[in-house]
């Protein structure tokens, strides 16, 4: 067991959560951070789906890594990811139909997520399956927490709700005689980039001393 959780393996898991975060440091996967974070729930579901798929595709590519011809390695990686995403979406449709309706286009979006290809190319091609899996989970979760933060801010200020539950009291709203108006800017996709920018700023100022 001690070998499974050696320092290197732990680093493969924990670094992407913070110091080597795919979104905040490497600025990957920004496209989907834009699309799915206007509310908290899709952000959470997307984060978890990416985590699962990054972990599995990392393991598969890592198992195949010695056989993959170098010249077509990107195509091989893409086929593995696409096949995996298709199978997952089929399984969701058959056994958890509600979730698959909820996810709709996001499942397809996962294929185009740059984090996936980035991890396959940079990590799984050189490392054995177990560290690759940890790396996949770490990167997925590193992506997920940024999405959750952005989704939290956008849903709270854009709709006054969290996970669909009303947080801002109804009596505060102008239409009910109060003073509060939902911030329509937060609902716009562009706002998520601004928030990601703020997250990066905060993250860099906190971690300044490490560099």
């Amino acid at each position: 067991m001690s070998k499974l959780f050696s320092e290197e393996n732990r680093a493969a898991f924990s670094k992407p959560l913070n110091l080597d975060n795919p979104v905040v440091i490497q600025v990957l996967g920004i496209c989907s951070a834009l699309a799915v974070t206007s509310q908290l729930k899709p952000a959470i579901v997307m984060g978890l789906s990416v985590t699962v798929i990054t972990a599995f595709s990392n393991v598969i590519i890592s198992l195949l890594r010695k056989t993959i011809p170098n010249r077509i390695r990107i195509i091989v990686q893409l086929v593995v990811v696409a096949a995996l995403v298709t199978i997952v979406s089929q399984l969701l449709k058959a056994y958890v139909y509600d979730v698959s309706v909820q996810l709709s286009v996001y499942v397809g979006l996962i294929i185009t997520n740059c984090i996936l290809m980035g991890r396959l190319e940079a990590f799984a091609m050189q490392n054995s399956p177990w560290p690759s899996m940890l790396d996949g989970i770490g990167n997925g979760l590193g992506y997920a927490w940024v999405l959750v933060v952005v989704g939290f801010i956008r849903e709270l200020f854009g709709f006054g709700t969290l996970l669909g539950f009303q947080i801002v009291p109804q009596s505060w709203y102008v239409e009910n005689g109060g003073w509060y108006i939902n911030n329509g800017m937060m609902v716009m996709p562009a706002m998520s980039l601004v928030i990601v920018g703020c997250v990066i700023w905060a993250h860099r100022s906190i971690n300044k001393e490490d560099k």
């Binding site: 056989t67 011809p69 077509i72 091989v76």
Partner: peptide, 16 residues
Amino acid sequence: DTGSNTYTIIYASVMV
């Protein structure tokens, strides 16, 4: 030789 043309073509076909 994983770099050879034959290997690459066979690999791709089998994978597909």
